[in-house]
Computed example of a mutant assay.
Amino acid sequence: MDDVGKTTLARHVYTDDRISSYFKIKIWVFSGNNFDSNQILKEIALSHNNDHDVGFLSLDLLQTRVVDILARKKFLLVLDDIWINDDPEWQELENVLNGGDKGSRVLVTSRLSTVSKVMGAKAPYDLPCFDDDESCSLFEKVVFQEGSSTADAHEELEAYGKEIVRKCKGLHLPAKHIRGLLRGNVDVQEWSKIVKELDEESNSKSKSNTILPILILSYDRLSYNLKQCFKYCPLFPKAYVFDKNDLIKLWMAEDFIDHNDIYKTKGIVSRDFDDLLNRFFSECSSEDKTKFRMHDL
Rank of each mutant, 00 (worst) to 15 (best):
M1Y: 07
M1E: 07
D3G: 14
V4R: 06
T7C: 05
S20Y: 15
F23E: 01
K24H: 15
I25F: 13
W28P: 01
F30A: 10
F35G: 02
N38R: 12
I40R: 03
E43H: 10
E43N: 12
H48C: 04
D51A: 14
F56D: 13
L61I: 11
T64W: 12
L76M: 14
L79I: 00
I82S: 09
I82N: 07
D87V: 14
P88I: 02
W90V: 00
V96E: 01
V96A: 02
L97E: 13
R105T: 13
V108M: 06
S110R: 05
K117T: 09
A121P: 03
A121M: 00
K122R: 15
C136T: 10
V143N: 04
E146G: 06
S148A: 13
D152K: 00
A153R: 04
E155N: 14
L157P: 03
G170S: 08
G170I: 07
H177Y: 15
V188Y: 14
W191E: 01
E201K: 13
S204K: 11
I216A: 08
L217H: 07
S223I: 06
C229W: 08
F236M: 13
D243M: 06
E254W: 02
D255A: 15
I262G: 08
V269G: 02
F273C: 10
F280N: 12
D288H: 05
F292P: 03
